[in-house]
């Protein structure tokens, strides 16, 4: 319980720092009125807009009212279409969740079994393949993978649309791009943590009890080897959201990554702040869930 309390406090600190940092960084990015208003707007018009947007108040006042509202889940309205930030984020968030979920599922589908097989048949063909694939996957930047996939599957083979949001066909290429991004670390960690468990004497003991090999692997090796993999998965979700920013931009996928980029470009402060806040909260929740899952798998931690 104490551990969870610590996690909760840590989570609140993470979200608070994220809110503060974004608040400062967006204001360093420049004056929104120079983008919202035409080039030839007068200084009086700009001052008026700043007042409407509340940007003429002191930074401390702005920060406090922003924090106060944020706690209640109110991040204000977009500078451009006066839609509430929460509703904009909620419109984009499902797309990102679908993308991240699909790519994580694809990555796990390949990385976990391949990682296990690579460890069980160490130095065999599967192991070689995983090693090579992991190196190649890790050395390709995801925007480039995205462009490559578009070139091959969309332009060349005409199997999928090049960009856009909505259908499963639209999802295929961005999800694959992100999956390739997540695959190397996941496969390698799965392999190395299985390799760590395999020589343990409880694995030999399970065989000496006459347990079938499939049961030895699934019950004994996997359960013990999964602990570090679960921890990585939680971090991986954070990484995927980072990776989603680029991938969504390449594929014009209407998720919060793309939303963040367009909002930064047009200095839509409330939207940027809102996106970061929701992502930070989401990240904290995922980390917390991973911690719970690890405790479920590893009883040694449960009783500490």
């Amino acid at each position: 319980m104490q551990v969870f309390l610590r996690q909760a406090i840590l989570g609140i600190l993470v979200v608070l720092s994220a809110l503060t940092l974004t608040f400062i960084l967006v204001r360093l990015s420049g004056d929104p009125t120079s983008i919202i208003l035409p080039q030839d707007a007068t200084e009086a018009q700009r001052a008026l807009l700043r007042e409407q947007l509340g940007l003429n108040q002191s930074l401390v006042t702005q920060f406090l009212s922003y924090l106060g509202n944020a706690v209640t889940g109110d991040f204000g309205k977009s500078y451009f279409d006066s839609e509430s930030v929460t509703s904009i984020v909620m419109r984009h968030l499902p797309n990102t969740l679908v993308l991240a979920g699909a790519s994580l599922a694809i990555a796990c589908l390949f990385a976990l079994p391949l990682g296990v097989m690579a460890a069980v048949w160490r130095d065999g063909p599967v192991d070689r393949f995983v090693q090579v694939a992991a190196v190649i996957g890790a050395s390709m930047p995801s925007f480039w993978v995205g462009l490559l996939l578009i070139q091959v599957f969309a332009v060349g083979l005409n199997l999928f649309p090049t960009y856009g949001t909505g259908s499963a066909a639209h999802l295929a290429l961005p999800a694959l791009t992100l999956a390739i991004y997540a695959f190397p670390s996941l496969a390698r960690l799965t392999r190395s943590s299985m390799l760590e468990v395999l020589p343990q004497s409880y694995v030999m003991a399970a065989r000496a009890k006459g347990m079938p090999e499939s049961r030895v692997i699934s019950r004994t090796v996997l359960r013990n080897g999964m602990v570090p993999v679960l921890t990585l998965l939680a971090l991986e979700i954070g990484n995927l959201i980072g990776g989603a920013v680029l991938t969504e931009t390449v594929f014009a996928w209407e998720g919060i990554g793309r939303l963040a980029i367009t909002s930064i470009q047009r200095r839509d402060f409330p939207v940027v702040q809102g996106v970061v806040a929701y992502v930070a909260v989401g990240f904290v929740i995922v980390t917390f869930l991973a911690e719970v899952a690890i405790r479920f798998v590893n009883p040694r931690l449960r009783h500490k």
Partner: peptide, 14 residues
Amino acid sequence: SFISQDALSALNPC
């Protein structure tokens, strides 16, 4: 049946 030297590591911790 087999019992091994190191009883802690011979039991599956999970």
